[in-house]
Simulated assay, not measured.
Amino acid sequence: MSYNMRVLVGGGLAFDTSPIELREQVAFRAEEYPQALSLMKDIMHLEEGVLLSTCNRVEFFSVCKNLDAVSKGWGQFLRFYHKKNFPFESYSQIYTGKYCISHLFELASGLKSMVVGETEILGQLKEAYMIAKERGMTQKYLNRLFQASFSAAKSVRSSTWITRGSISVSAVAVDLAEKLFGKLTGCSIILVGAGAVSEATARALQKKGANVIFVANRTYEKALELSKEIEAEAIPWSEFPSRIAKVDILISSTSAPHYVITKEKLAAHIGRRAGRPLFLIDLAVPRDIDPAVEDFEEVYCYNIDDLQTIADQNLKDRLAEVDKCKRLIEPHIERFYSWLVESINSQDSQFIRNFRMA
């Protein structure tokens, strides 16, 4: 459908409508944005345009005068740029008018993320917008639209609990460690086992200032390999119990069919800790750590179910905030619409009617 009017339109491929096997074929690196934007503008006949590519979505936001050219051109653009012969438009969602505004505002606020409330998407949107702006791809309408979306996101994040409460096992472990020790700068960690989740948890703790100083694994070569990646010391499996006296946090994730840390084994070293708290994180199934170790004062043990339960509750708390967030966003949508009506010139009066109906 071709109009002699401007239409606000956006959309594309997202995790809830297209599988990762599809999205990964058309992902864009940030350095590809400039070239891709120029091609997108030509193929889709855009007046303004922004391209967004993350691990969960490949989308665009635009102003055009030919909605059909945009709807058909989106798939053509992806096929031509990535040299893939696939009907990407069949898996894409297209939003026009107010639906497009609402989609962007909710996206910026983290409401449409796979992990509801995550904040990374806002930074990704800002980067995509700035690159498009520097290329001259955003003008009056998209400049105002994106600035309004950032304002809406700020309001949502500052007035609700949508971003609060960690919802991954590793992040929950960090939260608990901070509650126990305060600042984690200077806290020392030993990894028992070289599992992926324990490595992720250790790295999350490192970002907060903790130091991984020992890595122990039944296969010493695996401990050595991981220790090089996280700048720690690999130690023989038989030595890890004696090192407990020197650390603040122990993360265990072995595949042993029995406890590798028992109350009796811990008792031999707990006296040398001088009453310092010991945080034990058991990520193994079956469990690596005997729950009886909590009989010792200043020993705190959390298994993977404990952490997941906290994460699940935090997610429920976030989801409970979604309706409140949408109510907060609504005035921002209306303000942008009011500005649009006031600023649009007479030759675009049909655009206003289309915008209202969409």
Rank of each mutant, 00 (worst) to 15 (best):
G75T: 03
V299R: 01
K126G: 04
M114T: 08
K326Y: 00
F146D: 06
V260N: 11
V322W: 08
P277S: 11
K179N: 09
F60S: 06
N56I: 05
G110M: 04
L37G: 06
L125P: 01
E229D: 05
M130L: 15
Q350H: 15
M40H: 13
A69Q: 12
I101N: 07
N354E: 15
W339N: 14
Q93Y: 08
Q350I: 14
G271R: 13
L266Y: 01
R272T: 10
K326P: 02
P257R: 14
N4P: 08
K208H: 07
N314L: 01
G75A: 10
E298N: 13
R273T: 02
N217Q: 06
E31N: 13
A223G: 09
R287F: 03
C64D: 00
R57A: 04
L205P: 00
S166W: 15
L13Q: 13
R6L: 12
Y95D: 00
V192E: 07
Q25T: 10
V215G: 00
I329S: 11
V156G: 02
G275W: 09
E24I: 07
A268S: 13
D175C: 09
N217D: 03
S338D: 10
K316T: 09
F28R: 02
N217Y: 00
V174C: 04
R157K: 08
S227Q: 03
G12K: 08
D175G: 05
R135W: 09
A223W: 01
V7E: 14
L145W: 11
K183S: 14
I162W: 07
K265L: 12
S62A: 10
P286D: 08
S62P: 00
L8M: 02
R276S: 10
T160A: 06
I329R: 12
L283Q: 12
K324Q: 13
R335P: 06
K112E: 13
N85M: 06
F146S: 07
A196W: 06
